[in-house]
Amino acid sequence: MVPLLTTPLPVPHGFTTREGGVSQGPYQSLNLSAATGDDPERVAENQRRVLAAFGHPPAAGLRQVHGTEVHLVEGPGTFEGDGLLTRTPGLLLRVGIADCYPLLLYHPEGLVGALHAGWRGVVGGILPKALERVAALGLDPRDVHLALGPGIGGGCYQVGEEVVERFLEAGLPTFTPDPKAPGKYLLDLEKALLLQAERAGLKGERIYRVGLCTHCDPRLFSHRRDRGQTGRMWGLVMLPLRLR
């Protein structure tokens, strides 16, 4: 059985690790992307194992572009952008990660979402924009439950002045000077996401954190730690066919 990281999010969901698959070398073992240089047959088997953990449902995924476009989808397919929302029970949503943050959303009136948030997505406001789409559907976004999966931690994510200037302009001062590198900063993406969630009115008791750093934890793939030669993980969420 593929191990999944989960949270109290009250619908089927999970975040994969690098464990439980058949890939080898730098992709060992549960690499879920064929675009990394891994053997496509091994990737396909890894994907099959993950989908089996959810009962082999139809799935919707993304061609991620580090943007803020969020699609409302009704069926399976691959969509260009960085977010998916659906009201279709039994449709599995997935996003790929290897340092960026996977965000999973659930609204009790029958909606789930999956977002991919790197620094461009965070500063561009992919989470607030997704919540605006929730509101446009006639649902109160303040009732959303939010799960934040593993991503690169604030103590490991070094960026330059051009990035922190963007975060200042967005009202997200979630960085500190790097004491080991003059002119560089340590950027806390999770803190920025939590700040955006608070500003949107999400309740703290409905925000769930996995709390693992991809760069630090050897059980997880990290693009930055492994200098680009690594695999990808998935964040997944689905409305059950019958809500409790």
Rank of each mutant, 00 (worst) to 15 (best):
V2R: 01
P3Q: 13
L4T: 04
L4H: 03
H13Q: 11
F15N: 00
G21T: 12
Q24H: 12
G25Q: 06
Y27D: 08
N31Y: 04
A34F: 09
T36Y: 06
G37Y: 05
G37F: 12
E41C: 05
R42Y: 04
V43I: 11
A44Y: 04
E45I: 12
N46H: 08
N46K: 08
R48T: 00
R49L: 15
L51N: 03
L51W: 00
F54M: 12
F54P: 07
G55A: 03
P58G: 15
A60E: 00
G61K: 02
L62G: 10
R63E: 14
V65H: 01
G67E: 02
G67F: 12
H71I: 07
L72Y: 07
L72K: 03
V73N: 00
G75C: 01
P76V: 01
F79M: 02
E80V: 11
G81Q: 05
G81R: 01
D82N: 15
G83Y: 00
L84T: 04
T86W: 01
R87I: 02
T88C: 04
L92P: 14
V95M: 01
I97P: 00
I97R: 06
L104M: 13
Y106D: 00
H107K: 05
H107A: 06
P108E: 05
G110T: 10
L111N: 02
G113P: 07
H116P: 03
G118L: 00
G121I: 07
V122E: 02
V123T: 15
V123R: 11
V123N: 02
L127A: 07
L127S: 09
P128H: 01
R133G: 07
R133C: 00
G138F: 04
G138L: 04
L139C: 07
D140C: 05
R142Y: 07
V144W: 00
L146K: 02
P150H: 10
G154E: 01
G155R: 14
C156D: 15
Q158R: 15
V159H: 03
G160Y: 12
V164E: 01
E165A: 15
E165D: 13
R166H: 10
F167T: 13
G171C: 01
L172Q: 06
P173K: 11
D178V: 09
K180W: 12
A181H: 14
G183F: 11
G183Q: 03
Y185G: 11
L187A: 08
D188T: 11
A192L: 06
L193M: 14
E198V: 00
I207H: 02
R209P: 05
V210A: 03
V210G: 09
L212D: 00
L212C: 06
T214S: 15
H215P: 05
H215M: 07
D217L: 05
R219C: 07
H223S: 12
R227S: 13
R232F: 15
G235Q: 05
L239V: 04
L239I: 02
R244E: 14
